[in-house]
Each structure stands twice: as C-alpha cells, then as structure tokens.
Design a protein around this nucleic acid. Structure first.
Lengths: 199, 199
DNA sequence: TGATTAAGTGAGTAACTGATCACTTCAGGG
DNA sequence: CCCTGAAGTGATCAGTTACTCACTTAATCA
C-alpha cells in the first residue's frame, strides 16, 4: 500500500500530533509513529531527514491552523469586544482540537532539542499578542474598554486566562469543556474590563 | 569523600531540581546527576531504590516549600487583599526559585511515568485554589472585593495570571523579572476587582 | 517494452539509560 | 581489635532509540 509523498508526510505529521496527545510529546518515537501508520520505521526517513524535521513540520502545520483561525476570527463582527472574544474563542478551539499543544510548549523537544520549534511557537504567541493589542486599543478608543489600564497589560491578562484554563484542563484530565469554561471566564474578565465609571 | 545518608539524599534531590531546570526534567538521567555530584551512577541506588523514587522525593521537597510559603503568606497582614497579594507573591517567588516547576508540570515523568508525582502536584494546586477562595470570599464579605463576580471565578483568574506570567517568563528565556512582572499584573487585576460602584 | 525512480523493507548499529552485582573501603560499637 | 554494615566503585546487562544501508517493489514514461 504505497502512498504519494505529500499524503504520507501529512499522515506522519498527523500521527505525531496524535501520539503527542496520547502519550506525551517526548514519548513520541519514530518506531511508534511508523507502526501506527502501518509502515516500517526506516520508511519514515524517506520523507523526513531527521526526527527534528518531523517536529518542524508539525510546527508549521499548527502555525498554519492558528493563522487561519485568527484571520477568520478577525473578520467576524465589527465591534472590538466581539473581535476579541472571537480571537480568544478561536484560540480555545484550536487548543481543544490539538490537545497536545499545552504539553508541547513545555516538551523537551521544544525547549531543549529543537530551537526552530521554539522560535516558531514564540513568534506565533507574540503575533497573537499583537493582534489582541490592536483590538484592545481600538476598544479603548471607542470607549468599549476602560482605559485606566494599559492595553498591553490587558492583553497579557487575556492571554494568561487562556493559558491558565488550558493548563487546568490539561492537568485535570480534561474533565470539563475547555471551550465553554474558557468563554465563561472570558465573559467575566471582559465584564471587569468593560465596566466604566470607576468609583 | 563519604557523606551521611540524609545529606546525600538532600544533595541528590537538589541536583535533580538543578538539572531539571538546566536541561529539562525528562533529560535528567541518573548518570548526569551522579557525575555532577561527584559519585558513581550506581551509588545513587544506595539512596533511592529507583529513579521514580528520586522524583517523589523532589515532589515532597517542593510540596514542603510551597506549604511553608503559603503559611507565612497567610500570617502576614490582616486585610484579605493583602493576604491574597502575599499568596500570589509567594507563589511567584517559589516559581522563580524553582524554575523547573512549570516544565515539571508537563514533563513526561509527571504525566506518564509517575502517577504519585502527578497526584502530589494536583493536590497542591487545588489546595492553593482553596486558600485563595477563602480569602476572596472574606474580601467580598468585607466589601474589599466586588461581589458581582463569583469568588471561584476570581480565584481561577488569579491562578491563571500566575501561570500565564510563568509561561511567558519560561518561554521568553526569562528576560524579565518574574516576581516584578507578576506583582505588577496582579496589581492591575486587583484594581479591576476592587473597583466598586459599577455603573 | 524497458529503464528510471520514488517508496518501502529488513537487518542492522552506535549511543544512551536505568538497573544489577560482586567487591572494596571505612567508621563505630561490643 | 575485629566485626558489621553503610557508602561507594567498576564492570556489565538488557532495553530503547534514532538512524543507516543494501536491497526489493511497483508505478511512470520515453
């Protein structure tokens, strides 16, 4: 059962992500990936020169997904608060669909072995920060968001919210719906931020 | 150069934490620990039956530190807001002093290999949540904290703040002071929470 | 048709890791 | 003074992992 190269590559990337979720990023071995796909371990190296290259391909895949999700979030709604909520929701959705992501952020692969992977994720995170910052600033200019707190601090608080919920979801055996819980807390935080007329 | 058993045990635990910080928790090998201490790899197993046991000892050490830090934080100040700030500051201080902790939360060792370790950390996290919850509730009763948001949600927001800052600090090569940045953001969040008289 | 070549195989290898074991060293108590 | 037992050593083992290589298979196309 031979498959054309691009198909196999995509299949490998998907399996790496799947295994990373099920057994942890640093437990993903070339052997496990290969046998689960149904080919020999040696065959993997026909498609990727090294194991690191597989992870780099995974990072590109995830980066691509995130980019698309953000773009579509930004094109929904016109009010800054709505767009912010859409951005956060997209982020939560991506994490739920790629449960290995929180773990991946702290994996040995990313932090020690693969500098490219690390750089890729850092770029993506700061891009998200920039997008949020822009919307928050607009929100403050339009009076939707209180301006007695700097936009950058608000962005960090919102990003932290996502990460905190994701961690709790990840460590807590995923015993609640990440998306729902995240959006509930987001509503709370946005309520705090929208409240104008400080005493 | 022989050392009494307790001293060696403590030395091993400290070295495991040190190495976990420098090269990642899952890269800590018995060989590396031993040679950095200056003994043979085999000698480690005079003090711990398995490698897992070393990690369990590490968890007990960290748990102990956290417990003490929280207790001392709670005994400082009388106003709930002060005590909350002290709790968060203690947490930030512990993370800064034990930089391996965020990574450890997502290590293979904790998530896959060592169920005891996992349980120990989860217990500690929920204990922290409980402490925060209590202080927040007091704060609401005394009118220091707005009560149009549930205490539990506030607790999650504060914990998320810590985790979010820790992640940013960890991924960003620690290019800012975790403690300062964390306390600055905490002040912002507490400002949002303290503001009464919503319109 | 026959040559080319991408995809896959099976059998390896070198390096590393956790753990074991027989043996040595040495301090303290009877 | 010698005996016991804790602490350490050096050699070694079995298992795992990433990666290699000579070789086969099969689809494509000139």
């Amino acid at each position: 059962m031979r498959k054309p190269a691009d198909h196999r590559k995509a299949e490998i990337v998907a399996k790496v992500l799947d295994l990373a979720d099920r057994i942890g990023p640093d437990r993903v071995t070339t052997g496990a990936v290969a046998t689960e796909i149904g080919i020999t371990q040696a065959a993997l190296f026909r498609h990727f020169p090294t194991k690191s290259a597989m992870w780099t391909a995974v990072a590109e895949q995830v980066s691509d997904w995130l980019g698309r999700a953000w773009a579509s979030a930004l094109s929904s709604g016109t009010k800054p608060l709505d767009r912010i909520a859409a951005l956060i929701a997209a982020q939560l959705h991506q994490i739920a669909a790629t449960p290995a992501m929180p773990m991946l952020l702290f994996s040995r692969e990313l932090n020690v072995d693969n500098a490219d992977l690390r750089a890729a994720f850092r770029d993506r995170l700061s891009a998200f920060h920039a997008l949020l910052l822009q919307e928050i600033t607009h929100g403050q200019q339009q009076g939707e968001i209180r301006d007695d707190v700097t936009a950058s601090d608000i962005a960090v608080l919102l990003i932290s919210l996502v990460q905190g919920v994701a961690i709790r979801w990840s460590l807590g055996s995923r015993n609640f719906a990440l998306q729902d819980e995240g959006e509930r807390l987001l509503a709370v935080q946005l309520h705090l931020l929208a409240t104008k007329g400080i005493r």
